[in-house]
Computed example of a mutant assay.
Amino acid sequence: MELYRYHPKFDEFIQNYYLPDEQLHYSATPKKSIEVSKEDKDRHPVLGIDNNELVVFFILHENDGVRPYSGRENAVLLRSFSTNYKHQGQGYAKQSLQQLPDFMRVHLPHIDTIVLAVNVNNTAAQSLYKKSGYIDEGVRVEGAKGELIVMNYYL
Rank of each mutant, 00 (worst) to 15 (best):
E2D: 14
L3C: 05
L3W: 02
Y6K: 05
H7T: 04
F10S: 11
D11Y: 04
E12H: 10
E12F: 12
F13M: 13
F13I: 07
I14M: 08
N16H: 07
N16D: 09
N16R: 14
Y17D: 05
Y17M: 05
Y18R: 15
Y18C: 14
Y18K: 15
P20C: 02
P20V: 10
D21Q: 13
D21C: 10
D21I: 10
Q23C: 00
Q23E: 14
H25G: 07
Y26C: 03
Y26N: 12
S27I: 06
S27H: 03
A28P: 02
T29V: 07
P30Q: 05
I34T: 01
V36D: 12
V36Q: 15
V36E: 13
S37M: 01
K38M: 13
K38R: 14
D40V: 02
H44T: 15
H44D: 08
P45D: 11
L47D: 04
I49D: 07
D50C: 12
N51R: 09
N52R: 11
E53I: 09
E53F: 10
L54A: 13
V55E: 03
V56N: 09
V56G: 03
F57E: 00
L60V: 07
H61Y: 14
H61K: 14
E62L: 13
D64G: 02
V66F: 01
R67T: 10
S70R: 01
G71K: 04
R72S: 03
E73A: 10
A75G: 04
V76W: 01
L77P: 02
L78P: 00
L78H: 03
R79T: 14
S80I: 12
S82D: 09
S82V: 12
S82Q: 06
T83P: 08
T83E: 08
T83A: 05
N84Q: 07
Y85A: 14
Q88K: 09
Q88S: 01
G89K: 05
G89W: 07
Q90P: 05
Q90C: 06
G91R: 00
Y92F: 08
Y92L: 03
K94I: 06
Q95L: 14
Q98G: 04
Q98C: 05
Q99E: 09
L100H: 00
D102L: 07
D102V: 13
F103P: 03
P109M: 05
I111Y: 00
D112G: 10
T113Q: 09
V115M: 01
A117W: 01
V118W: 00
V120H: 03
V120F: 08
N121A: 01
N122S: 11
A124K: 13
A125E: 06
A125C: 03
Q126D: 12
K130C: 14
K131L: 11
S132P: 01
I135L: 10
G138Y: 00
V139I: 15
R140E: 07
E142P: 13
E142Q: 12
A144E: 13
A144I: 14
G146V: 06
E147R: 15
I149W: 00
I149R: 00
I149S: 04
Y153C: 12
Y154G: 14
